[in-house]
């Protein structure tokens, strides 16, 4: 009610600009403006983080954004990092690889999670324009897995050609017997990530030859769990998504091997990092802004990332790159 009074008085003062009114504007308006200014220049002090181990007094804020696939790794690293450096704030967002690059290339974020290379000329030129130089650090690999319902007893392996026949934008396949002559008469229903997903970009580029080119009459979801449930509950289903989601739902899904010309290969903890599972193995990266890396907090975090990255990458369900890659990453940072 008091606020109302103030508001009314201001209105009144404006309408009837008498001398008394002007006085009111000043007496009420000034404190309001002062308070707002005090707020705007608000204290930049660190929050009340319990300094359990005051061993580390390193302070600072690190801003990370990008791929939802890489997010679990960055979150795990941030969590472990905070145990050692409790006063450093690590903010991790999920805007997708493309969305993360948009913020990274204007210098808004220090680190960008990515499930593909930054090769889009729009992104690289934007980075150049804004003077953002960066290091590209490989973390590991995710194998996009093709799956069917566990009750499906006829599909063991599909060639890249067959996958393209099923998924290309002009595809008219609606029955399994259209894929291979030996397959029974069984209606086929398709499940896959929606078009904002990096998985979708990668799959369509590798299988259909053009990123974002896909048939549209399939059940699309940004939530991979929806796809798991869809495939698990539908006898004629076929779908694809990241290996981590398969690993968590092995009993509900049946993996399909992919033949890219040199025999059928199933994605597994061996075939994905070795490169045998092609063409659906995709690399996972973080991009580090070189200017941010000069800051002690970011430097400590990235070095921590490189040290614990392999373990944590495996822990959250992906396959970490070998020692050679990580040594290479450290060399890049040292330069």
């Amino acid at each position: 009610m008091r606020i109302l009074k103030v508001l009314y008085k201001l209105m009144f003062a404006l309408e009837s600009s008498t001398k008394r009114g002007r006085g009111l504007i000043i007496t009420i308006g000034l404190p309001v403006i002062l308070i707002m200014m005090a707020c705007a220049s608000g204290p930049a002090e660190e929050g009340a983080a319990p300094a359990a181990e005051s061993a580390s007094k390193l302070k600072g804020t690190i801003e990370i954004d990008g791929s939802s696939t890489v997010y679990p790794i960055s979150e795990a690293v941030a969590e472990e990092f905070n145990k050692v450096f409790p006063k450093v704030r690590v903010n991790v967002g999920v805007s997708g690889t493309g969305g993360g690059f948009k913020r990274f290339t204007v210098g808004e974020t220090d680190i960008s999670d990515a499930s593909r290379l930054m090769k889009n000329p729009k992104e690289t030129s934007k980075a150049k324009e804004n003077g953002v130089t960066y290091d590209e650090l490989r973390l590991g690999t995710d194998g996009i897995s093709v799956m069917v319902n566990p009750d499906n007893n006829f599909v063991e392996c599909l060639t890249v050609k067959e996958l393209k026949a099923i998924w290309n934008p002009e595809s008219t396949i609606t029955n399994w017997n259209q894929v291979q002559s030996g397959f029974p008469d069984q209606k086929m229903r398709l499940y896959g990530p929606d078009s904002d997903s990096g998985t979708f970009d990668y799959f369509t580029e590798e299988i259909n030859g053009e990123a974002q080119a896909s048939r549209a009459d399939y059940t699309a979801s940004a939530d991979d769990n929806v796809l798991v449930r869809g495939i698990a509950g539908d006898k004629g289903s076929l779908g694809y998504f990241g290996y981590a989601y398969y690993a968590e739902n092995k009993d509900k899904l049946k993996l399909v091997a992919v033949d890219s010309g040199s025999g059928c290969v199933e994605p597994s903890l061996e075939t994905i990092p070795s490169g045998k599972y092609t063409p659906l193995s995709r690399p996972l990266f973080i991009y580090v802004n070189e200017k941010s890396y000069q800051r002690p907090a970011v430097k400590a975090f990235v070095n921590f990332y490189m040290e614990h990255g392999p373990n944590l990458t495996n822990e959250v369900g992906y396959i970490a790159s070998g020692n050679a890659t990580y040594t290479d990453n450290k060399d890049k940072l040292a330069r």
Partner: peptide
């Protein structure tokens, strides 16, 4: 607006993430 999911502090004033 925020695009954030992982933060480990309680915002202390209106100008924090």
């Amino acid at each position: 607006i925020t695009a954030l999911v992982y933060i480990t502090y309680i915002p202390a004033h209106p100008f924090e993430r």
